[in-house]
C-alpha cells in the first residue's frame, strides 16, 4: 500500500511530454506534421512506464500477500483445533464423528491428537509416555513451521518430557536456576505464543488402532507450574 504513490510516480510524470510536444507542434508550422506521431510516441512511453510501474506493484502485492496469508488465515490447523487440550491432555482429531475440521493429508493408519497451547499464561510442560506403537510428537507454531519434532525412540525410561517456553520465560528460569545445580529439564523455546502440540501414533496393523488412539490421546500438556 505504501508503495502505491512511489511506483505510481513515474507513471504520473510520464504523461506531461505529449501535451508539450503537441503544443510545440501546433505552434511551429513544419513541426505540425510530426505532432500526432510525437504525441503517439509520448503516449506509448507513458503506457510503457505505467505498465512497468504496474508490474513492480504486482511484485510487491504478490510478496506481501504470500507473507500475510499465514498471519490472517482462519482456516489453518491452529485455528481449527484452538479449543483442544483444555483438559490438560491431547485430544484425537482423526476418526469419525468428532465435529472437528477434517485434517488434510492425514495418514489413515495414524491416530492424530492435538492440544492447543498459549504461553501467555506461563511455560507449558509436555509429557508423553511411550506405548506399544510408534509415537511422534511435534510442535506446530501458529502461522506455520514445525518448532520441534521428536519420536518415542528418544524417550528416556519410557518418557519424553520437555518444557515449552518463550525467550523471556527462559531468561526468567535461568536466573532462578540455582548455581552449581544441574538442570535436568529439556527446554524448547517458542518464538510465537500460540501453537499446537501434535501427537501421532501409527497403527501398523488394524488391531493396533485402539493402542494408537490411546497413545496419541494421552500426552499431557499443562502449565509447568
Amino acid at each position: 500500500m505504501i508503495a502505491t504513490p512511489m511506483t505510481a510516480d513515474p507513471a504520473q510524470d510520464a504523461p506531461p511530454p505529449p501535451p508539450k510536444a503537441g503544443a510545440t507542434g501546433r505552434r511551429g508550422g513544419p513541426l505540425s506534421r510530426l505532432g500526432p506521431l510525437t504525441r503517439l510516441g509520448g503516449a506509448l512511453r507513458g503506457w510503457l512506464l505505467a505498465t512497468l510501474a504496474g508490474l513492480v506493484l504486482a511484485g510487491i502485492v504478490h510478496i506481501v500477500t504470500i507473507l500475510l496469508i499465514p498471519r490472517l488465515s482462519e482456516s489453518d490447523a491452529a485455528s481449527a483445533y484452538l479449543l483442544l487440550g483444555a483438559t490438560g491432555r491431547t485430544e484425537l482429531v482423526t476418526g469419525p464423528g468428532r465435529g472437528l475440521a477434517e485434517l488434510r493429508d492425514a495418514d489413515p493408519a495414524v491416530a492424530t491428537a492435538a492440544c492447543s497451547y498459549d504461553l501467555s499464561g506461563g511455560p507449558m510442560r509436555i509429557v508423553a509416555r511411550t506405548g506399544p506403537v510408534p509415537l511422534g510428537l511435534t510442535l506446530h507454531r501458529r502461522g506455520g513451521g514445525v518448532l520441534y519434532a521428536v519420536t518415542d525412540r528418544a524417550a528416556i525410561r519410557g518418557v519424553i518430557e520437555f518444557i515449552l517456553l518463550t525467550e523471556e520465560q527462559l531468561a526468567e528460569r535461568l536466573t532462578r536456576d540455582g548455581d552449581g545445580q544441574a538442570v535436568r529439564e529439556l527446554r524448547i523455546v517458542s518464538d510465537t505464543l500460540e501453537g499446537l502440540v501434535v501427537a501421532r501414533a501409527l497403527a501398523q496393523r488394524p488391531s493396533d488402532r485402539a493402542d494408537a488412539e490411546a497413545s496419541a490421546a494421552s500426552v499431557e500438556c499443562g502449565l509447568a507450574e
Binding site: 489453518d76 511435534t138 514445525v146 519434532a149
Partner: peptide, 28 residues
Amino acid sequence: GGRDIDPYMRAYLARGVHLPLGAGEGVE
C-alpha cells in the same frame, strides 16, 4: 517440516487444516 519453512509452503499449509510431518518425525 522445519523451522526454516519457505514462505510459499507456509502460505499453502496455512490455507487448510494441515499438520505436516516434522523433520525428525518422518518424510512424506
